[in-house]
Computed example of a mutant assay.
Amino acid sequence: MDKNVGGIDRTGRIVIGLVLTIAGIAALTGYWAIGAVTGVIALVVAAVLLVTGTTQKCPINEAVGVDTTPEDTE
């Protein structure tokens, strides 16, 4: 699978993934009263976003034909 996540898409995935990680941990440790199930869901979504953001590969983007990597201008 070629890279298909880049630019603002990649940055957004990483930033939102980090925020969801913090929120999920806060929920699971009791610092934020949104519930343990919501905390686990936040951590799972965060993991997906962080992996797709750092590897720059997203199977959903590939399935629908979306590519947000910059075009080569050479």
Rank of each mutant, 00 (worst) to 15 (best):
M1E: 11
M1R: 13
M1T: 07
D2L: 12
N4M: 02
V5R: 03
V5L: 00
V5G: 01
G6P: 01
G6V: 07
G6C: 02
I8N: 09
I8H: 07
I8S: 10
G12K: 00
G12Q: 00
G12P: 01
R13I: 12
R13A: 05
V15K: 02
V15R: 01
V15I: 15
I16A: 15
I16Q: 00
G17M: 02
G17W: 00
L18I: 15
V19P: 05
V19K: 01
V19Q: 01
V19F: 15
V19S: 11
L20Q: 01
T21Y: 03
I22H: 02
A23M: 11
A23T: 05
G24W: 00
A26T: 12
A26I: 09
A26M: 15
A27K: 06
T29S: 15
T29L: 07
G30Y: 05
G30H: 10
G30I: 03
G30Q: 07
G30P: 08
Y31H: 15
Y31K: 14
Y31W: 15
Y31C: 11
A33M: 14
A33D: 13
I34M: 09
G35H: 05
A36H: 11
A36L: 04
A36V: 10
V37N: 11
V37S: 15
V37Y: 11
V37L: 15
T38I: 14
I41P: 06
I41C: 10
I41T: 12
A42Y: 00
A42K: 03
A42T: 04
L43G: 04
L43F: 07
V45G: 10
V45I: 13
A46P: 02
A46N: 00
A46R: 02
A47D: 11
A47L: 15
A47F: 12
V48G: 05
V48E: 03
V48S: 04
L49V: 09
L49H: 07
L49N: 07
L50V: 10
V51P: 01
T52C: 02
T52A: 02
G53I: 10
G53K: 02
Q56F: 11
K57N: 12
C58D: 06
P59M: 04
P59F: 09
P59G: 08
I60V: 13
I60Y: 07
N61F: 14
N61L: 05
E62Q: 13
E62V: 04
A63F: 06
A63H: 08
V64T: 00
G65V: 00
G65Q: 03
G65L: 02
G65E: 00
D67I: 14
T69I: 04
T69W: 06
T69K: 08
P70W: 05
E71Y: 13
E71K: 15
E71N: 08
D72Y: 13
D72M: 13
T73Y: 13
T73C: 06
E74F: 10
